[in-house]
Amino acid sequence: MQALLHQVLSGLANGGIYASVALALVMIYQSTHHVNFAQGEMATFSTYIAWQMINLGLPYWVAFLLTLVFAFVMGVAIERIIVRPFYKAPALSVVAVFIGLLLVINSLSGAIFDYTIKPFPSPFPTDAWYGSPYLSSHEVGMIFVTLVVLALVFAFFRFTPLGLAMRAAAENPVSSRLVGVRVGWMLALGWGLAGLIGAVAGMMTAPIVYLDPYMMFSVLLYGFAGALLGGIDNAWGAVLGGFIVGVLQNLAGAYLVGTELMVTVALVIIVGILVIKPAGLFGRTIVTRV
């Protein structure tokens, strides 16, 4: 029973990461209907920036905040410069561009910071009072940070005029433009926020899996699975989906298939959802008028 509890709890901790990535994916999907394959690589690159700053002697939380700024600017820049021309392009071009981005950013991480695996510090001391046999202090901190980020994102969209404008731009670009919302910039801001959330996920994952250019590859896949499970057009659903995938993955790894087939679990979840309930648990079913 204790083992089960441990698996569920640490699954929740991982799930927090997947939830963040899923939320970042949903943020871009809602406004443009693009699935950002480069999300994980953007996060990895931002984490490298954080690593560099910490190595230069900056305190962790200063580096953390500066990295968030960097990730935001990077997201905006990528949208404005590379993705914008493909706003209305067919899916094939868009996916090809995203895969191209994935490769370019991944090789940039490798070229600048080289491919050796690096340890990444955790801001949560291992002997902190909130650590327990069930959940290490980093895992507790990770869940806490994830929840804070989610709450901030929610508050931003719910209570600020800018958040409202962004929601409007995603919901109905034409009408939003008519009432004076700068839709193009709203999309760019969405990318910036997605980059920022991804960076948080990257910095929280790195202490566990160590920093290397391929760090976020499987995380991205679980993020996809989470977003699909919850419904890729529903932010809350995606977050919940991320947590569920984290727990499922841990349970399957412990009791069902062993750690060797973890990625296959994600494949099964993705294909399973797409086949049985493509809208996800909480997503809108899209009815096309013929």
Binding site: A96, V97, G100, L101, L103, V104, L108, G110
Partner: peptide
């Protein structure tokens, strides 16, 4: 890899 990625984007 960088070349592959760059070529993909450039081709598009």
């Amino acid at each position: 890899q960088a070349l592959y990625g760059g070529v993909l984007i450039a081709c598009m």
